[in-house]
Simulated scan of single mutants.
Amino acid sequence: MDTAIKNNERLVFQVINDLLFIPQSVDREDLEQIGKIALWKAMESYDESCGYKMSTVCYKAIYTDIVGYLRKSRAKKRQEVIVGEGLTDDFMEDLFGSMLIEEIRKLLTDDDFNMFLDKTIGDLTFDQLATKYGLTKMQVRYRFNKAKALLRKNITWEDNNT
Rank of each mutant, 00 (worst) to 15 (best):
S45C: 07
Y59F: 14
A42Y: 02
V83L: 15
C50M: 13
Y52V: 10
A75V: 09
P23T: 02
K60N: 12
V26F: 06
F144S: 00
S49R: 12
Q139L: 12
L87W: 10
T125H: 07
R152M: 15
Y69A: 13
M115Y: 04
F21P: 00
A75Y: 15
C50N: 13
K132Y: 08
K53E: 11
T88Y: 12
R105L: 15
G97E: 01
K132H: 07
K41S: 07
S55P: 00
D18N: 08
D65F: 01
G35N: 04
L107C: 02
K119E: 07
D127P: 05
T125K: 10
F21G: 03
V15P: 02
G86C: 10
K76I: 14
L107A: 04
F96S: 04
F116G: 02
A149D: 12
E44K: 09
M92P: 03
N154S: 10
F91V: 04
W157R: 14
I101F: 05
F144A: 04
K106F: 13
R78L: 15
V67T: 13
Q14S: 09
F91W: 12
K41A: 09
I37L: 15
L107W: 06
F113G: 02
E158T: 14
I121L: 15
K106C: 12
M99F: 11
V57Q: 08
L135G: 02
K6H: 07
R105K: 15
F96Q: 02
S55A: 01
F113K: 00
D89P: 00
D110C: 05
F126A: 13
L11P: 02
K60R: 14
F13L: 12
K72T: 08
K36C: 14
L124M: 13
T56M: 06
N161D: 15
R152Y: 10
F21L: 14
I16Q: 01
